[in-house]
Amino acid sequence: QLATDRVDDNGNIVVRKQDWSEMKVHVSSYNTFPTAAGLASSAAGYAALVAGLAQLYQAKEEFEGQLTTIARQGSGSACRSLYGGFVAWRMGGKNKEQDDWSDSLAQQIASEQHWPELRAIILVVSDQKKDTSSTAGMSTSVATSELLQHRATHIVPKRMEQIEKAYLEKDFETFGRVTMADSNQFHATCLDTYPPIFYMNDISRSVIRIVHAYNAWAGEIRAAYTFDAGPNAVLYTLERYAIELSALMLHYYPSFGDNYVNNPKFLVKIRSTQLDPQLLEATDRTGRTPQAGDVKMIYYTKSGPGPQTLSTKEANIDPTTGLNCYSPP
Rank of each mutant, 00 (worst) to 15 (best):
Y326V: 01
D276N: 15
E164L: 02
N215V: 02
C79S: 09
V295F: 05
W217D: 03
V27A: 07
I109M: 08
Q113E: 15
K313W: 00
R151S: 08
A166E: 12
D8N: 10
G230V: 04
S311Q: 00
L310G: 05
Y167M: 13
G257E: 02
N324G: 02
N324L: 01
S139A: 14
Y46G: 03
P277R: 13
V295P: 03
S246T: 09
N95M: 03
A43W: 06
T289H: 14
T35N: 11
I210L: 03
F256C: 09
S303W: 07
L267T: 06
S134F: 04
S42T: 01
P34K: 02
K130D: 09
Y241K: 13
R151Q: 07
F227W: 04
E117H: 13
A181T: 14
T32F: 13
D202C: 05
K94L: 10
L147Y: 13
M160R: 11
I298T: 05
Q73C: 11
Q113G: 06
A48I: 01
S139G: 06
L39Y: 00
I208M: 10
W89I: 05
M91G: 09
Q58W: 04
A78S: 09
L323F: 06
S126F: 00
L238P: 12
I70F: 14
P195R: 08
T35P: 08
V87R: 04
S111W: 01
E64P: 14
S204Y: 00
V87C: 07
A315W: 11
Q274R: 13
S102A: 13
H187C: 09
F186N: 10
K24M: 11
P277L: 13
E61S: 08
S102F: 06
M91R: 14
T237G: 14
L248S: 00
N31H: 09
Q128T: 12
K60P: 07
E22L: 12
G65S: 12
S327F: 10
A88C: 11
L191P: 06
R151E: 05
P319S: 12
T320C: 10
V25G: 10
S104C: 10
K130A: 07
W101E: 06
K313R: 12
K129V: 12
D294Q: 15
N232Y: 02
S183D: 13
L235P: 07
Y253Q: 06
